[in-house]
């Protein structure tokens, strides 16, 4: 059971990474809205900004945004 739970956890982290890559600059926006972590905050935000620049360089675009627009238009919500 422990091994399965390890696989589950590793997969969820990989998916989170994938979600970040596919979500335009939203993760960075959300990161700026997160609670202040005191002395760690600046360093963490510098790291996230650097990582987000690497993500943008991949050129995958904002898949999340397009999916969101499509879902809102299709359902009449939003």
């Amino acid at each position: 059971m422990r091994r399965q739970m390890t696989n589950f956890t590793v997969t969820t982290w990989l998916l989170l990474l994938a979600a970040w890559v596919l979500s335009g600059d939203r993760f960075l926006d959300w990161a700026y809205q997160m609670p202040d972590l005191g002395p760690l905050d600046d360093r963490l935000l510098d790291l996230l900004t650097w990582l987000d620049d690497r993500r943008a360089a991949l050129g995958l675009g904002d898949v999340f945004g397009r999916l969101r627009s499509w879902l809102h238009a299709t359902t009449g919500l939003g």
Binding site: Q4, M5, N7, F8, T9, T11, T12, L15, L16, A18, A19
Partner: peptide, 11 residues
Amino acid sequence: PAPAQALTLGT
């Protein structure tokens, strides 16, 4: 399998 459960959750 566990990765498929995580994929369902993540999606």
